[in-house]
Amino acid sequence: MLHRFANPNRFSRLAAAVLPWVTGATIILFVVGIYFALFASPADYQQGETVRIMYVHVPAAWVAMACYTFIAVMSAVSLIWKHPLADIAARSAAPLGAGFTIIVLATGSLWGRPTWGTWWEWGDARLTSVLVLLFLYLGHIALTHAFDNPARGAKAAAVLALVGFVNIPIIKFSVEWWATLHQPASVIRLDGPTIHSSILIPLLIMGLAFTFYFVTMLLVRMRAELAARKARALRLNAAE
């Protein structure tokens, strides 16, 4: 299974076939999700309309963390089996993850102002650990591009991704270990979600929409990266 898709050409063909479907799914999910989030869901009895920031903030946070986990898994695959596509996947996912993390921090800050009365709270472990996640993404991107030999950059970045993975459980459990401003988990928990279905369902649709958007962009970026490699190889061949 793992080696069946090691062939970049086979992967490219498969990605080209899948791409229109995931793109369509992304658009439909976003249209439905945004309609539910902005119009068909109730405003919070305490926070009023600002609660709608959640429909961007929470899915972006899920995807930002899932993306880092994805990069860490791909890095392990790349280091252990030297799978040629794993490096490309990790490299293509990192800027996307950084983007989602910026969205999380920006929307969280905008949401924090009316509800907590502050843009940024240094004492909160959730905020700090997500900021560290952003720095890890930036470090990963910088390290990938820091070497003249791209293979060396990919390997170094893979080691960094695995080391930085310690941060993911810290983000997840920070709200339980250090209960300060940020509220604890209310969707992904052992005894089931604690929020009402009129809010939960739009949230899950937005979560799916963000996930499909991530998959779409990942496939586009991976195909572009493969095409760039091919172009480079052809140019080198032509020059010889």
């Binding site: 700090t128 560290v132 720095f135 890890l136 930036l138 470090g139 910088a142 390290l143 820091a146 070497f147 003249d148 060396r152 950059g153 170094a156 080691v159 960094l160 080391v163 930085g164």
Partner: peptide
Amino acid sequence: AIGAALTLGARRSGVLISLLVLPLYI
């Protein structure tokens, strides 16, 4: 040491080390 080893042979390794290591120092 992880950061120093990862950036061996990189361009502008000094700046890069700080980017890699400082978040983990927090």
